[in-house]
């Protein structure tokens, strides 16, 4: 596989993994959890390095996931106190965990070249160079890893489809029918954390955060069906991955950045030009309504 194809395929797999979960985050008002988790995992990565002296994938992913879970549970604890709103709870917890990580780096690991961007959080341009032998074929390590996460997310969303739909739409009713919104919420957020952590390592944090939020936001503008929302989110993610890779090569710019830009471009397009809910469509609707009312009034006046 060529380097370009590897990068594009990795990005598409990340877009799939994120696109399956993103719509639920956006619909539940938890979009910024992804950003929170992306910063909160730092101390986990640092701790693994300090304790075991390794930056190997599996222990780092485990350490990071542990801190992602701490972050999510911490946010829940503040929110459940009823004294701190959800947004403030997020903003209290993740910078604190990030601060712990920074302290860990500067005081204990400064000689170890843990640098915040590429080494820890991954850089998608490097994916073709880190390979693994899979059934005798040499493939980029990121592909089986991210592919597994995407498959797990797909299984999760299919299996929990009605639970996710029900508890997101009407949590109170769901409770009376025996589906605890808290449990469903924990499972979803944990899946987001694992997805984020695993994908960071391959493609970098900002691309994951972008792919969790932006395509889902764009898809919200396009459709009123949940299944279509998820499908559109994944599709927009793929467009971002391919288009982003192409433009990054053309401009010789950051691949992750370019993919984020294409995703944002898709969102802007959807916000403005979506068929029913886009800004332009609404303006047109309003103008048509006004004209009709004016006509009716005219006719009434003439009669």
């Amino acid at each position: 596989m060529s380097d370009g194809a590897t990068i594009a395929l990795t990005a598409m797999l990340v877009a799939t993994a994120c696109g399956l979960l993103g719509p639920f985050l956006v619909l539940r008002g938890q979009a910024l959890l992804s950003d929170a988790v992306s910063h909160a995992v730092l101390p986990g990565i640092v701790a693994v390095f300090l304790l075991f002296g390794t930056r190997a994938s599996v222990p780092v992913i485990l350490g990071a996931t542990a801190f992602a879970a701490i972050c999510v549970l911490g946010i829940d604890a503040f929110r459940n106190s009823g004294l701190v709103r959800a947004d403030a709870a997020i903003g209290l917890v993740f910078p604190t965990l990030f601060a712990l990580g920074v302290i860990g780096i500067t005081s204990f690991a400064s000689g170890a070249h843990i640098d915040l961007d590429a080494t820890i959080y991954g850089e998608i341009a490097f994916t073709p160079f880190r390979t693994v032998d899979l059934f005798g074929v040499e493939v980029a390590r990121a592909i089986p890893i991210v592919g597994t996460v995407a498959a797990v997310n797909l299984a999760l969303v299919v299996a929990l489809w009605k639970e996710l739909k029900g508890t997101s739409f009407d949590p109170e009713f769901s409770r009376t029918t025996g589906f605890s919104p808290a449990i469903v919420s924990r499972v979803l957020v944990l899946a987001v954390a694992v997805t984020a952590v695993v994908s960071f390592e391959s493609v970098g944090a900002i691309l994951v955060v972008t792919l969790l939020i932006v395509p889902a936001a764009a898809a919200r503008m396009l459709t009123d069906r949940l299944a279509l929302t998820v499908a559109a989110t994944v599709a927009i993610g793929w467009v971002s991955a391919l288009g982003g890779y192409g433009s990054a090569v053309a401009l010789d710019a950051s691949i992750a950045g370019a993919m984020g830009m294409v995703a944002t471009g898709c969102f802007a397009l959807a916000l403005l030009a979506a068929p029913r809910y886009g800004v332009l469509a609404r303006l047109a609707q309003r103008r048509r309504r006004r004209r009709r009312v004016a006509e009716l009034l005219d006719r009434a006046g003439a009669a």
Partner: peptide, 27 residues
């Protein structure tokens, strides 16, 4: 308490009434 903008159809809402009988994870 409900988010009226949620992408869900009338039929799907009514179907929620059958969720308990179906149980966790099952359609």
């Amino acid at each position: 308490a409900v988010d009226w903008d949620f992408p869900i159809t009338v039929r799907e809402v009514v179907e929620m009434g059958r969720y308990r009988a179906a149980g966790w994870l099952r359609r």
